[in-house]
Simulated scan of single mutants.
Amino acid sequence: MREAVDTFRRDIGVKPSCEALGLGRATYYRTKASPGVEKESSLGAPNPPPRALGPEERRQVLDLMHSERFMDQAPREIYATLLDEGHYLCSVRTMYRILEQESEVRERRNQLRHPVYEKPELLATAANQVWSWDITRLLGPVKWTYYYLYVILDIFSRYVVGWMLTRQESAALAQHLIEATCHKQAIQPNQLTIHADRGSSMTSKPVAFLLADLGVTKTHSRPHTSNDNPFSEAQFKTLKYRPDFPERFGSIEEARAFCQSFFSWYNQEHYHTGIGLLTPHVVHYGLAEKVIEARRNVLGEVYRLHPERFVNGPPQVNPLPKGVWINRPPSE
């Protein structure tokens, strides 16, 4: 084969000659470097390693492992049994290698296969299109006592459309809150998507049946992925980082009074950076353009009186986002 390449290389070169003969150039150069040794094995099928078992020996090992005596034993047990009887066929690793080549090695335990959860991608371009809801615990008066705060949030306006504080977490209570909030906001069939994590109340059948009856689409976060429900998580952080948020509540009445005051402040007075420094109430009820125009007039008047103070031109009002995403796709 090397001599044929030597013959044609003068006319067409080494690379075309090797390609025409089906010979690798590295093989040609390697055999050419040792002219006294013709490595015929590299030109055809590779020779098996000298320490490898022959075909008959491999068949003997495989038949032995398939025998009724050893068919339910592991290769290590087979190896030890044969040694005690004065026989040696091959190593334990070789037994496993033979079984693997016959596709007979796999996990024997009935292990749980986790399904692949699809990443939720939700877009809201107006209020009452996508709601996010979650439950957090508030510490009670003594250790191991909690109150459960249910909160439903509109992700476009950040407006808390519904909340409830109870002594226990229950699918029936969640069903009642969602139904009452949908009626209060006059939600029509096929108008709304409600997103939540995979808590027991969120994935319960009563809630699923209610949403189906109301014509509301439900979506869920992936397991252990808090970023799939960012707006509810951020709202809970705002709640618990308030200066007057207590370490513990003395009673459920005290906790409800605090939440009543907080959510009134949050909806009516809290200027939210994610919605152009507007309050959730202004955005949710369609007053944003009016407020933005008033702010634009104020800044325009200031620029008219003192243009030298604005080196980059007239100051601009923070705009209201055109859309709010949960997990924006890379193409958007």
Rank of each mutant, 00 (worst) to 15 (best):
I152R: 00
L153K: 10
L153D: 01
L153S: 00
D154V: 01
D154H: 03
D154F: 02
D154A: 04
D154R: 01
I155D: 03
F156L: 03
F156Q: 04
F156N: 04
S157A: 13
R158Q: 12
R158G: 07
R158C: 11
R158N: 07
V160R: 00
V161Y: 03
G162D: 04
W163G: 08
W163Q: 07
W163N: 07
M164F: 11
M164K: 13
M164T: 05
L165A: 09
L165M: 13
L165I: 15
L165K: 10
T166V: 09
T166M: 11
Q168C: 09
E169D: 08
E169W: 09
E169C: 10
E169L: 09
E169P: 10
E169A: 13
S170I: 07
A171K: 08
A171H: 08
L173D: 11
L173A: 12
A174K: 02
A174S: 14
A174Q: 05
Q175C: 11
Q175L: 09
Q175R: 15
H176M: 11
H176Y: 06
H176D: 13
H176K: 13
E179P: 01
E179K: 13
E179H: 12
E179I: 00
A180K: 13
T181K: 01
T181H: 00
T181A: 08
C182N: 03
C182I: 08
C182G: 02
C182K: 02
C182P: 03
H183V: 05
H183A: 15
H183L: 12
H183K: 10
K184V: 00
K184N: 04
K184W: 02
K184F: 01
K184P: 01
Q185T: 01
A186E: 14
I187N: 00
Q188V: 04
P189S: 09
N190I: 02
N190R: 14
N190L: 09
Q191H: 03
Q191E: 15
Q191I: 03
Q191Y: 03
L192N: 05
L192G: 04
L192V: 06
T193G: 08
T193S: 08
I194S: 06
H195R: 09
H195Y: 14
A196P: 06
A196E: 09
A196K: 06
A196Q: 11
A196R: 05
D197C: 11
D197M: 10
R198I: 15
R198C: 07
R198H: 12
R198E: 08
